[in-house]
């Protein structure tokens, strides 16, 4: 479907407007002197990349990985550890971070993709906890105190300390990730992954090596997760094991489900909704009655229950049925 034609559907229009808004966000925040909004925007874009990468296996593949935040950590620690040893150029830091995340994903995938259902949820969690506690034990890199790092350098290209350029870099990478994901979903490879979600016996019977396809998807997903970790470390100029706590993995799952599993733009919708809820629930409750804002989770919890019960398709399904 052509871009012009897709603009006529509600979903296409919403996505176009959303991307347009994200593209001009730095101009708006500058005009209205709202630098903090740009920080939130940057985090949304980075988390969206991570959510899209999780969606590759969770949404398309139906594999509930409960340890995706570990890739935040691997990407982030690659930047931090190399930086601490004087390797400050992003041209080395970034590929190393992405490759390390992919390698770890390949290893974990090879061991855990033999299990199913809840066993898979738990084994991915176990491996994530393993890396988390390794981070807690890394005394040379701050252990659980974390480490203040200096941002990756791309001399002559972009200065990551400049918030606006950093935002645009993240946004460009988000577009790249979306593009890759759409190619992935519509390829033969993506077809097998999605087919195996509903019936992996049939896929195997058709002669597809489902395990190897899934392993490849898991590895790719880890690589993009690592990229998000690299960006996150550069955003805060700080790394810590808390980046990869299991709660963060849980948040990522919530985001993907909230936005709409197995849809191209669902993770992006989900991330925006999640951040908007988190930022706006406390002040909203404070408006109802002063002091209630602190108890915002008492409203957020049941909201999650309602989403799980009644909003199965996520936000994406609000725009009608998906095609293709």
């Amino acid at each position: 479907m052509s871009i012009v034609a897709s603009l006529r559907t509600p979903r296409g229009l919403a996505v176009a407007l959303l991307l347009l808004a994200l593209a001009v966000l730095p101009l708006l925040t500058q005009a209205f002197d709202q630098r903090y909004l740009l920080s939130i925007g940057t985090r949304i874009v980075i988390w969206a990349i991570a959510a899209i990468s999780l969606n590759m296996i969770l949404g398309y593949g139906g594999l509930v990985s409960f340890g995706h935040a570990v890739f935040f950590g691997i990407g982030g620690y690659a930047v931090g550890i190399l930086g601490a040893h004087g390797v400050v150029t992003g041209w080395i830091q970034w590929p190393v971070g992405i490759l390390a995340a992919a390698a770890w994903a390949a290893l974990v995938g090879a061991l855990s993709l033999r299990t199913r259902g809840v066993y898979f949820i738990m084994i991915t969690l176990a491996f994530a906890q393993l890396v988390y506690y390794v981070g807690v034990g890394l005394e040379a890199y701050g252990a659980d105190d974390g480490l203040n790092i200096s941002r990756s350098r791309f001399p002559g290209l972009v200065d990551l300390r400049d918030k606006t350029s950093f935002y645009w870099l993240c946004f460009a990478l988000l577009l790249g990730t979306l593009w890759f994901c759409s190619r992935f979903a519509n390829s033969r490879f993506g077809f097998v992954i999605r087919g195996a979600k509903s019936n992996d016996l049939r896929m195997t019977a058709l002669g597809f090596p489902v395990f190897r396809y899934r392993l490849a998807a898991f590895t790719l997903s880890g690589a993009f997760g690592g990229l998000a970790g690299i960006l996150l470390a550069n955003e805060g100029a700080y790394i810590s094991p808390a980046m990869m706590s299991w709660v963060k993995s849980g948040d990522l799952i919530v985001i993907v489900v909230l936005g709409g599993m197995g849809t191209l733009f669902g993770p992006l919708f989900g991330t925006i909704a999640f951040f908007v809820l988190e930022e706006s629930l406390p002040p909203l409750l404070d408006l109802v009655r002063k002091g209630w804002g602190e108890y915002w989770q008492i409203a957020f919890g049941p909201l999650l229950v309602l989403i799980a019960l009644y909003a199965r398709g996520g936000i994406d399904s609000l725009f009608g049925r998906r095609h293709g």
Partner: peptide, 20 residues
């Protein structure tokens, strides 16, 4: 501002205080 006992949340809240 509530840091929720999490470093990243604490950083966000500090950022909000300073910038907004």
């Amino acid at each position: 501002e509530d840091d929720q006992f999490k470093p990243d949340v604490g950083k966000q809240k500090s950022e909000k205080l300073v910038q907004q």
